[in-house]
């Protein structure tokens, strides 16, 4: 899925390749045990020995949640521009940073928009990939989220947003800040259309994205192990010059302070979504009979 020249690839789960598949074993950073990679993958990227959550790419996340064969990448064919002609201190222009991220991830952007079914119910997915410049929100992400909302309205699907982001993309300056406004404004269309918006916050969901679209869900879930907050731990520590509570900005912290509806284990996210979607089924397109039955069958089995 690497990008050569100007070729960008849409995400096809069937073609999902894994860059690091050459080695069979990996060491868990939490428990230090050597674990068989294939076992880790089959276990939703969770350490089979200690339960530590390893990082998930956006395609892996999608694979974990959707009905097999139902996913279609409907991202808009756009890529980041360099509105400020931004140059990092190491002399690298922003455009090069983007290119490098594209090559490393095989993705065109930091977010994938897709049409899929989950438990038979129609959803539009918007999934961020933290590997791509920290999953930060620039003009592309803003536009893609608006597109996702439009698709959801047109197709009467639920919007499921999965955040993995450090916040706004500094290299696009004020225009990245404006994406907070753009996405929040678009969110109203879901409300007007009476369509559910489920926001899933993962590790990490912070700053500009947390302070806009990610916090505007009808239902907000934190994946177990999530980091949720506006200002980063380090900055707060520098400002107040005090030690921060151990659980600061963790999933539990967010739950205890009423910021999320529930904390859900990664392996249970799909079932949790199906449970929620079932409650909204009458509002979604062609979901009632088929999806309901399918899910009932699942439940019986």
């Amino acid at each position: 899925m690497a990008i050569f020249g100007k070729k960008y690839f849409k995400v096809e789960l069937e073609r999902l390749e894994r860059k690091d598949d050459e080695t069979l074993w990996m060491k868990c950073k939490a428990c230090g045990e050597l674990v068989f990679k294939k076992r880790v993958r089959e276990n939703n990227n969770i350490c089979p020995k200690c339960g530590e959550y390893f990082f998930l790419t956006a395609p892996e996340r999608i694979e974990l949640l959707v009905d097999p064969g139902s996913f279609e990448d409907i991202s808009r064919p756009i890529v980041a521009a360099d509105p400020l002609q931004f140059i990092d201190e190491d002399g690298k222009p922003y455009s090069e940073k983007v290119k490098k991220a594209q090559e490393e991830t095989g993705l065109a952007n930091e977010i994938i928009i897709g049409r899929a079914r989950i438990g038979g119910y129609p959803v539009i997915l918007a999934v961020m990939d933290f590997r791509f410049i920290g999953g930060s929100m620039g003009s592309v992400m803003g536009e893609q989220i608006c597109q996702a909302i439009q698709y959801a309205v047109q197709e009467r699907a639920a919007l499921v947003l999965i955040s993995a982001t450090g916040g706004a993309r500094m290299q696009e300056g004020i225009l990245s800040l404006m994406q907070m406004a753009k996405t929040s404004a678009a969110r109203k269309r879901l409300e007007d259309a009476k369509l559910p918006f489920i926001s899933i916050m993962t590790y990490p969901t912070t700053a500009g994205v947390e302070a806009s679209i990610a916090s505007l869900g009808d239902i907000t879930l934190a994946e177990k192990g999530a980091l949720i907050g506006f200002t980063g731990r380090r900055v707060i520590k520098q400002t107040i010059r005090q030690e921060l509570p151990e659980d600061f900005q963790t999933d539990r912290f967010a739950f205890e302070h009423g910021i999320v509806d529930n904390v859900v284990k990664r392996e249970q996210l799909r079932d949790e979504l199906i449970k929620i979607l079932r409650l909204f089924a009458p509002l979604l397109a062609h979901s009632s009979a088929v999806a309901g039955e399918a899910h009932q069958r699942e439940a019986i089995v």
Partner: peptide, 14 residues
């Protein structure tokens, strides 16, 4: 809604 700047790429290269 108009704020932001990105580059369009052709469907065929995507």
């Amino acid at each position: 809604h108009k704020m932001g700047l990105y580059e369009e790429i052709t469907e065929s290269s995507f």
